[in-house]
Write a protein that binds this DNA or RNA. Sequence first.
DNA 1: TCCATTGTTCGTAAATAATAGAACAATTGA
DNA 2: TCAATTGTTCTATTATTTACGAACAATGGA
Lengths: 110, 110
Amino acid sequence: MSLCDTAIMRVLQHPPRKNLTLTQVLYALSDPVRLSIVKNLAEDDGKACGTFCLPVAKSTASHHFRVLREAGVIEMRSEGTQCINSLRREDLDARFPGLLDSILRASDPL
Amino acid sequence: MSLCDTAIMRVLQHPPRKNLTLTQVLYALSDPVRLSIVKNLAEDDGKACGTFCLPVAKSTASHHFRVLREAGVIEMRSEGTQCINSLRREDLDARFPGLLDSILRASDPL
DNA sequence: TCCATTGTTCGTAAATAATAGAACAATTGA
DNA sequence: TCAATTGTTCTATTATTTACGAACAATGGA
């Protein structure tokens, strides 16, 4: 069955670009676990939640992905039983020029 | 009496440049009150705590200044009964190139 | 249909953080 | 010396955040 024909497709809310706020983005990135997710995506975009090696329980990881999504930092789309994540680079760059790059450069290498 | 001769001079702890951490700085700047302090200092450095128009009580403001100081974002020095604040631009730029600028550019004008 | 996989949600507990008022401390000027 | 100014610290309260396990839901393959 094609993905789009799926009867029940989880709809994840993403804030539109214009609604992104600086403080919310900074807050989302101020947690080590969440920052590591973003750093990981910056190097390898489109990864499923389960492929990240995080030092927290599954439910906690789910929470962190949600914080990133609601801040507008990542986009999540379900694909089968998985959840594919990607960085909202264009939106972040448009709204906060240079911010993401400086943060990625400032953080230690993976 | 000269400032340096003062018998009891409050000694404020400031983290050295090398100890600044990205997550701590991001966290410090993720609060609207603290971000407004930093934006204010970026335009008008060397202001005393009392000259900021903040929507919180004196003790709460004191807390926010401390968070900024302990994250290494601002430098505080006492001068008489006042506390003079300045942005640690050079340290921030050295440690996290472009970060402060992008944040100041991204935030709305005062 | 059954089961494994993947991730979310719920309930809850522990830790953090923001806030304010009151008391306090240091400085300066009258 | 006394009082005003400026800011910190203490204490308490409230709210938020992080965390986990258990239960649940959706998907896809055997």
